[in-house]
Design a protein around this nucleic acid. Structure first.
Lengths: 417, 417
DNA sequence: TAATCTTTTGAAAAAAAATAAGAAAAGTTT
DNA sequence: AAACTTTTCTTATTTTTTTTCAAAAGATTA
């Protein structure tokens, strides 16, 4: 029952004031979810509304039963203010993190608590087949969740690829011009609004909201796994570019006449600085008989060598592993130097599996930055390793989905008048 | 008299409502200057204010005598709305475009009309001496202008260099740590608020406001003269980065072990793709006896060869000139390809003197973009030559200065309450 | 421990602003 | 010329914001 009150449908022939009030309530709920609790005064400031009006809105939300006022906020030396929070388990987002070889689905509530989380093997294909598969998995997951279906407001999906901001088409994976846009397809099939975000952009949002980028304005988030991705935060927001394709750092031209990249171009940064490049270098080194711990690997593993293995070897002191990590780091650092020159960030956050190589990768990166950046720009830009754990993905997605869900409702109110 | 009413000083012990009203008036004047006239309805929408309130504000501004209502706006089939405009010659900005070897000073009024404009030889130095010189020129220019001094609201200055957004220090030119920040110094000396902007960012603002970027959200503005500069427009605004140093494209690492750049690093893009690089290539070509029209130049001009000369030769069909323009274009295009991958712009505007080489430079650029960009990104990004004339600089500066001036007043009201 | 500040809450009266509704104005279209 | 649009401009009504105060709840100080 309670989530229903969010819907705009009952506003059809209501007065402008009722619509405005409904808008305020939506904004308030949105802010309470995003801020995880706000004092009266904070709400006044945020909605640019007077105290009596704020109290009216809060009491009306309290009547619907979705607000609790158990806690007190911090004071600067006086009576402690009441903290208004949305009750736990009131609203949910179904989050799906789609990776190349698995899907992680999580049900997150409005207090960022995880209700249920599963990780399922899955193959992300370029054609439409994996879209159908994904819908099947999502439907099953939703059906198995013993949560009132109405309380699941929306579905948030993160995945790699060039995802069109406008219509939620992925131009790289699950791509089929003849089909409906992916977002619309998923939304139709599951009967809920769906939002699809690029995986790095959602990681950037997680950093901005829960991680090192909190309160910062100009931050770059770099994810290094098999490929390299970049999430751009400028002036305090994740920036998408004209179509939503911003941050394709992995495929910026880097090596003159380099190796052919899977994207069809030659010499992309990703061909020489990524998990794939690291694995290739390790494999070549082993085959050419380098003196290294890696040589003790069984033949099977040499074929399918993963970045993690090289990192482990480096941590055991293996010189060859350290040296190839260093050269990957130096190239990546040169790429990052380019970014610093262009974006003038105050902070660069490194995440992803390769980042776990820690100083074996950060020191060469920092060295390259020092070499290739102008001093005033370099002095401002700090490089740090992400401190977010495994649950950051779902949290980031949930945050984006809540935000987009309320923005959607709000803009439909705007459009009505 | 009239500009005085803008000042916040008389608000000291006024009620909240009077402050709010004053804020509305400031916002209204700002919008009227920026929009060069607005209808009643447009003001309502822009200030999120009701019609009666809007009329009240307008009539109060009309009483001060700074508003005129002579024109009518466009209608979509009914009574034409009244256009509210700030009267011409009510407010002025003193604009200075500081270049390496001259200063252009212009007095611009609130309707973007130029009152007076002079161009004076000048040498922009890295040390403080040219700051003193600039203040002298500005003072003279202001004294010679027969405009009520009070009506000159602020001084807007564009110049090359790394200009700190926070305190208006230029870290490249007129740079002296022991002095006050440049902005403060000029402001103190001339007794007016001063705003200092990087030249490319002001060009980007001009494109956004008066040029090809109008109504666009994600645009890159590239200025090619002796050096290369980049102005970044993302989500509809010029973005400055953390310190104001964004867009240092000319010094992104480009050539492995390249020539030493004046910035101290090796192989910057600017060393192989800029007016300086063009001139160097032309000079070397001549000295190595290339078959070219350029060989007919007098020895004196060969030493100080300017990009324009190469462009002229190309326009006469000179193959060598065309070929070096092409190689400059190809490198620049590769750099632009990197930008496209990162920013996902819908439009790239080329300006500056080298852009006058027209298709001799644009075709190689486009070719490089096609070679080095992923298809979905390339398909979105159009490349066009700037169509703004010589007066765009001052207009861009004036626009920024008006905006910053009113923002300054508005934020001081905010701070008071 | 008591007294004194601070800050927040909550309520109520006064002031201001927004909404709504309608008449008049000034065009366009038919 | 009539019908229709769209905007302006009033005015009455409703809503919201200010403003003021007293009370509450905690922090600080004596």
């Amino acid at each position: 029952m309670s989530p229903l009150f969010l819907s705009n449908s009952h506003l059809e022939n209501k007065s402008k004031i009722e619509k405005k009030n409904h808008g305020f309530k939506l904004k308030l709920v949105k802010a309470l979810i995003a801020g995880n609790g706000m004092t009266n005064a904070a709400i006044c400031k945020h909605l640019r509304i007077s105290a009596p009006k704020t109290l009216e809105l809060i009491s009306s939300l309290a009547q619907v039963g979705i607000i609790e006022q158990n806690e007190k906020g911090n004071s600067i030396g006086g009576r402690k203010p009441v903290l208004n929070k949305i009750k736990p388990n009131t609203f949910y987002i179904l989050c799906a993190e789609v990776e190349l070889f698995r899907v992680k689905m999580t049900l997150v509530d409005n207090t960022n608590t995880f209700l249920r989380s599963v990780s399922i093997p899955f193959t992300l294909t370029q054609d439409w087949s994996s879209a159908i598969q994904l819908v099947r998995l999502l439907t099953e997951f939703m059906d198995d969740s013993d949560v009132p279906e109405k309380a699941i407001l929306a579905i948030g999906i993160s995945m790699p690829g060039l995802i069109s901001y406008k219509d939620g088409r992925n131009h790289t994976y699950m791509s089929d011009e003849k089909q409906l846009p992916l977002r619309e397809y998923i939304s139709n099939q599951l009967g809920k609004p769906a939002f699809i975000v690029n995986d790095v952009k959602s990681a950037a949002m997680a950093e901005l909201k829960f991680g090192l980028a909190q309160g910062r304005k100009d931050v770059l988030v770099i994810l290094m796994d098999w490929g390299i991705g970049l999430g751009i935060i400028m002036d305090g927001r994740v920036r998408n570019g004209a179509a939503g394709f911003s941050g394709e750092m992995g495929h910026m031209p880097f090596v003159e006449d380099g190796i052919l990249c899977y994207c069809g171009k030659k010499g992309c940064l990703e061909t020489v600085a990524s998990g794939v490049a690291l694995a290739n270098m390790a494999r070549e080194g082993i085959l050419s008989g380098q003196d290294s711990l890696l040589n003790t690997l069984p033949e099977q593993e040499i074929e399918n060598i993963a970045p993690q293995i090289v990192i482990n070897a480096a941590n055991k002191g293996d010189q060859y592993a350290i040296s190839i990590l260093a050269s990957i780091g130096e190239r990546l650092g040169k790429g990052i130097a380019t970014l610093i020159q262009l974006f003038n960030p105050e902070l660069i956050i490194l995440g992803g599996k390769i980042a776990e190589a820690n100083q074996y990768i950060t020191i060469p990166i920092q060295q390259a930055i020092n070499t290739y950046c102008m001093t005033p720009l370099r002095d401002i830009a700090r490089v740090e390793l992400s401190r977010l754990g495994a649950d950051a993905g779902a949290k980031g997605i949930a945050h984006i989905a809540f935000e987009k869900y309320f923005d959607m409702l709000l803009s439909s109110i705007e459009a009505e008048r």
